[in-house]
């Protein structure tokens, strides 16, 4: 009695405790949605903290946001939005049974993840270089640092929020890599694309969170 999925070429045996592959599909999708709810609640805690301190130190947050390069943020927004499109396309082509297009779209999605992280890497190192560290480690010595006693707190939020988001991007890229391996083996097809669907939902959420982070950190200030 095993739940190992012995699948060949798009033909999928569902796990023993489900009635059918369809039953497994809707259940997995429902489970993914529930998981996304927990993610939203977790990020929600951070957003609440951000809102409270933004209210309290309005001008300090504004000063902090001027250190960010909104063009780089906008570039990353576009990259992530595009990757959401290719993620969705990979599912679409799986439903049509076009293996090569599934793979192409997954590779593009993965590449977008890399571009996003590369841009973030340059943003981070630039801030480290200037001494724009979170909280107690803050060592920037420009005029703004003297105007506000706790400018480091802005960067606490910046690094914690983008850091947690970045770790989700990395997790999503891990999942996409796993999908690529399975797609190469030809496991996905019109009858079975549950992992694509579920990973896709996760990837869209990561995208969505960035769409909130971008204006909150780069634009509103």
């Amino acid at each position: 009695m095993s739940t190992v999925k012995t699948a060949t070429s798009g033909h999928h045996h569902h796990a023993h405790h489900y009635e059918s592959a369809e039953h497994e599909y809707v259940t997995s999708k429902f489970g993914t949605w529930v998981f996304l709810v927990t993610e939203i609640v977790m990020f929600g805690g951070l957003f609440v903290g951000y809102i409270l301190f933004h209210e309290k130190f309005h001008e300090m947050f504004h000063a902090g946001s001027t250190f960010l390069n909104w063009r780089l943020g906008a570039l990353n927004t576009v990259v992530l939005l595009f990757s959401s499109l290719t993620m969705a396309l990979s599912i679409y082509y799986a439903q049509l049974g076009k293996k090569s297009l599934v793979l192409l779209n997954l590779y593009v999605t993965l590449a977008c993840g890399f571009i996003f992280l590369t841009v973030k890497y340059f943003e981070y190192t630039h801030k480290f270089h200037e001494g724009l560290f979170p909280g107690a480690l803050f060592s920037y010595d420009g005029p703004e640092a003297h105007q506000f006693s706790n400018l480091g707190m802005y960067f606490s939020f910046y690094f914690v929020m983008t850091g947690l988001h970045g770790s989700h991007v990395i997790a999503g890229m891990g999942l996409i890599t796993w999908l690529i391996v399975r797609a190469h083996r030809g496991e996905f097809g019109p009858e079975y694309y549950t992992p694509l669907e579920c990973t896709g939902l996760f990837w869209h959420l990561v995208d969505l969170i960035w769409i909130y982070l971008f204006p909150l950190l780069y634009l509103i200030g």
């Binding site: 301190f53 560290f133 979170p134 909280g135 107690a136 480690l137 480091g152 707190m153 606490s156 690094f159």
Partner: peptide, 9 residues
Amino acid sequence: AERVLGIGI
């Protein structure tokens, strides 16, 4: 993060 980085929140 507060203990490791001193984020100050």
